[in-house]
């Protein structure tokens, strides 16, 4: 999808509105957009992991006088980085949880106990309760190559 990044004229209203930039100075959405425009993304590995600091709150996009779809643009930048093998370990881990359980946040002992206390079934009526449905998820994830994306790096 085109994210109309070419409309950006580097005014910096995006970074000014960004709650993450306020806390973490290395996170500069304006810089990432410019690098993407100039095709520099793969030459700056030092910017990883910062491209993954965005919380996708859309404040930058709301504040952009040029109507740039900034969050879409950033998600594409991240996707390209992941394709180059630059996935963060924490994201690989939740990707693996999705592969294993169908949930990014699977059930745990406390959660099961709480469900029983509330009169619910121990497992929710989701993919967590159905081997067949979980198998369907795995088929789809393998079809789109997601298993390779979250696979452990070969030593």
């Amino acid at each position: 999808m085109s994210s109309n990044i070419e409309r950006c004229y580097q005014c910096g209203q995006c970074t000014a509105a960004c709650p993450m930039a306020e806390q973490e100075q290395a996170y500069k959405i304006r810089r990432f957009l410019q690098m993407e425009k100039l095709g520099l993304k793969s030459e700056e590995p030092m910017d990883i992991p910062f491209i993954f600091y965005c919380t996708t709150c859309y404040k930058c996009q709301d504040n952009c006088p040029q109507g740039v779809k900034i969050v879409d643009g950033l998600l594409s930048i991240r996707e390209a980085a992941v394709r180059d093998g630059n996935i963060l370990p924490a994201h690989r881990k939740i990707g693996q949880m999705l592969m294993d359980s169908g949930h990014a946040v699977p059930g745990n002992e406390d959660g099961k106990k709480r469900r029983l206390q509330l009169g619910l079934d121990e497992m929710p009526p989701t993919v967590a309760s159905s081997e067949k449905q979980l198998n369907d998820i795995k088929i789809l994830l393998n079809l789109s190559g997601f298993d390779q994306i979250v696979a452990e790096e070969k030593a």
Binding site: A104, V105, P125, T126, S144, V150
Partner: peptide, 18 residues
């Protein structure tokens, strides 16, 4: 909605592989 999975989460999974 029997058999539903993770939605999957909009920020993280969309940025791993759309």
């Amino acid at each position: 909605l029997d058999g539903a999975s993770c939605c999957p989460a909009p920020g993280v999974f969309r940025s791993l592989d759309k």
